[in-house]
Design a protein around this nucleic acid. Structure first.
Lengths: 380, 380
DNA sequence: ACAATTTCTACACACGTGTGCACAATTTAG
DNA sequence: CTAAATTGTGCACACGTGTGTAGAAATTGT
């Protein structure tokens, strides 16, 4: 078996020549109707190793049923030929694509990007690839996205930070794969989810303001009416109660989660006869807009108005002033979601309803209200 | 042919029953060793339409060779059975995966996220899916990423915002697919690229500071030694020259593109005997850190130091003060890169070396230096 | 030395789709 | 009304891999 390796290699070179083309890295432009460039397959290797393709397949998959020096020989030949197994063919045969679909409204924001980053890391470490699908909240695109994931036969799906509407639900439930929802509003419909503990986090944030002595605390919510918003609002209410503060409806307004809308609704709040001395925002982006508006109106954060956000996006520690906020471990949550998918793919029948706690991070955008400050001049 | 549709459908229902399982949306946990759940294939449809699978295939692919009412009939049956063609099998047969790989150092920053967003949109509109691969600048992961893309037989690759190192080059060039580099440093090795016009943009930015009257203008570069950095530095130098300003080496420092490092090197600059009155930063993230440091040292932007960034990330218009910067159309660049890939896949032999211009966006972080301000008290 | 194991390999089929070619069915021409 | 042209459909193979089973080869036991 050692005697014929020379001729074997020669034969193989001829085979893989089409793939290797020029010797060194060639600079040529990819040209002409994209010739699919015959790659080396296990059959080619089988031929030059003088075994059947089944043996090659088993050798490369550590099957105990093939002689160890045969394995070695085949491995070497495969290596030298630059063999790369076709995930496509493998998927067809095994009925597993080692692929998970990640549905996201848009990836162009730090929250989604962080989550996807966490997902991708864990996926990659376990041999899974991530196909991205952003819907842009466009119904047409949403339908297309689902269809694509279906056709690609993804092994699992993670839906993140998207209001899974009436559209997704029936379509997604059709395909018989594990689905994990991340911070979504219909956690009960599907069995699996990863969520931030909105209520307690929100309570803690508002409580922080209460303890600083604020009595007029506003809440800027999410006008899309998400479950997260409801829960965060709940925590806000509870914290008010705990501080014996009256609930004042005019201090609750709703934005769309963008800085622009944050500015807009903050302007409304500042226009009140008795403006709030503190604002708890649904998310950091809104808080960014709120701060901007406060500054633009000639006021100061936190002297005139304290601001607190939600998410702890990587940038908000560098704003002026650095933002007090609830840290939401986005990457970690992505990780957890992916690990849940892996667990489910592994055959675990368990139900995942993972809750992660948000942590209050106190920075410089919150402080005592004017009245209670050292240099007091009480008004109101 | 109309007479037997009833029995046809009955037969089909039986076939697709395995896939449909319960009637309404079932709530059951995905359980047990993940049974791949036989889906309906063209063969199933062929059977109940009493034709061969080839005819079904042709009917669904608009082949002109099949009678139009047969097409209609097959279409209806496929529709009712909830047929979803297997992209896997199709890829195997056609040798096209309709998939493009996007390599990125990390997606958890706004630049990369914006680019990927643009890519995904165009890809989706053209029937392509995006598989994400982030390398985290980890050599081990980089190798794995390339291997994965190879095995998945992606039709094309876009590498973005990553220093394509000695590692990527030979590995990527092996696979015979179009590769487009986005803001990368080795544009010449591969034929195709999308890049921002660093030199002119940088010149314009620095020129803006010169025209405001600044004479001590610092440059905070990227210590990774990227091509972009070299070019931006070049524009900076040229602008100094154009204003007859001497080049002062101590005013050039290097960060790593994070706000943290921006703070660090800004501290160095502020510690100089004669600190700069303006700073041009390699990117917005660095600028964010620089501003933070300036504020932390009790100084004011732009009164004491003007700051200008690069990228125009969506958030920097909401910082305090809003940041003057160079707008880099990230989404658009992603679009262009994907369009280039599509063009190449279409057989165009043309070479793509796309340059996009960066636009100076003047906001409130830049202003005249103290000396030249209305309330002048000249020193130096 | 021969039978009974055990170890290894090859054959054949499956996965789901696309496609060249031959042939059947239909239409048109003469 | 038959022959020729046209149109519609089926057969068979290909794509690259995995895997059950049968049988060949090597090993062990008597």
């Amino acid at each position: 078996m050692g005697s014929n390796t020379e001729s074997d290699h020669a034969a193989l070179r001829k085979i893989s020549a089409g793939a290797k083309a020029g010797e060194s890295l060639r600079n040529r432009v990819h040209t002409g109707e994209a010739e699919p460039a015959k790659l080396v397959s296990i059959k080619d290797i089988a031929r030059s190793a003088k075994v059947s393709h089944s043996t090659v397949s088993r050798a490369l998959n550590n099957s105990p049923r093939v002689k160890s020096d045969t394995v070695e020989r085949i491995r070497r030949i495969a290596e030298e030929a630059g063999y790369r197994g076709s995930a496509i063919a493998r998927s067809l045969a095994t009925r597993r694509t080692k692929t998970i679909g990640v549905v996201v409204t848009t990836i162009a924001d730090l929250f989604a990007a962080g989550v996807v980053s966490g997902i991708e890391t864990v996926a990659g470490d376990n041999g899974y690839s991530v196909v991205l699908a952003n819907s842009n909240a466009d119904p047409e695109r949403e339908k297309r996205v689902v269809r694509t994931l279906e056709e690609r036969r993804v092994d699992g799906i993670i839906v993140t930070a998207s209001r899974v509407g009436a559209l997704y639900l029936p379509l997604l439930s059709r395909m018989n794969v594990p689905i994990v929802l991340l911070n979504n509003q219909h956690p009960s419909e599907f069995a699996h989810s990863v969520m931030i503990e909105n209520f307690s986090a929100s309570y803690e944030a508002t409580r922080h303001l209460v303890e600083l002595g604020h009595r007029r605390i506003a809440y800027i919510g999410d006008r899309n009416g998400s479950q997260s918003d409801t829960d965060r609002f709940g925590g806000y209410r509870q914290a008010l109660d705990s501080g014996q503060l009256p609930f004042q409806p005019e201090l609750v307004v709703y934005g769309s989660g963008t800085p622009e809308s944050g500015m807009e609704v903050m302007a409304t709040l500042l226009g009140l006869a008795a403006p709030p001395t503190a604002v708890f925002c649904y998310d950091d982006m809104t808080a960014l807009g709120a701060m901007r508006q406060i500054h633009a109106s000639g006021r100061h954060v936190p002297r005139d108005v304290s601001v607190i956000g939600f998410d702890d996006l990587s940038i908000v520690q560098f704003t002026e002033p650095p933002l007090t906020t609830i840290r939401q471990p986005m990457t970690e949550m992505g990780r957890l979601a992916m690990e849940a998918v892996l667990d489910l793919l592994g055959g675990s029948g368990s139900t995942h309803e993972i809750k992660v706690r948000g942590e209050l991070v106190v920075r410089a955008s919150t402080g005592p209200p004017k009245g209670k400050a050292p240099n007091s001049d009480s008004h109101v």
